[in-house]
């Protein structure tokens, strides 16, 4: 399975669902057409499974500014793929290793990007 395969996202959703069901004392087996507490038809599942970011065509003339906390091989690979297809990609390493924004966090301090990340984005947008 490739690292940017849509099945990775499905797998993460299924793990989230299994975790929630366990914590909230619901049966482990979920109904067809549901996932993570919402309707999730088979057509949506199949569409997501087919997503492969390496094969997606970026819009013509698209420009991507990617802000990451540290350089990673998969970020670079995605950038190279988009560049090959004619997009402009710039990857910015913010150096922030803690509190860069944790998706789904209920802790206000960690659910928003670190001020340094915001500053980097604003500076780039203003340039």
């Amino acid at each position: 399975m490739a690292t940017d395969d849509g099945r990775i996202d499905l797998d993460e959703l299924e793990l989230f669902d299994a975790t929630q069901r366990l914590r909230l004392l619901h049966p482990a087996r979920r109904r067809d057409g549901e996932l993570a507490g919402y309707a999730f038809p088979r057509s949506v599942r199949e569409s997501i499974a087919k997503i492969d970011l390496r094969r997606l065509e970026p819009p013509a003339g698209a420009k991507f500014e990617v802000f990451v906390k540290e350089p990673r091989e998969d970020f670079s690979a995605l950038g190279v793929t988009f560049q090959r297809r004619g997009a402009t990609v710039e990857v910015h390493s913010t150096g922030v290793t803690n509190g860069a924004g944790r998706y789904g966090s209920r802790d206000p301090a960690s659910s928003v990007p670190d001020p340094h990340v915001v500053s980097a984005i604003v500076a780039r947008a203003s340039a």
Binding site: L15, A18, L22, R102, G104, S105, D107
Partner: peptide, 14 residues
């Protein structure tokens, strides 16, 4: 299957 599930969640201590 059970072993894959995280032992604790980020908001357990809230």
């Amino acid at each position: 299957r059970l072993g894959r599930i995280p032992l604790s969640a980020a908001d357990d201590d809230i």
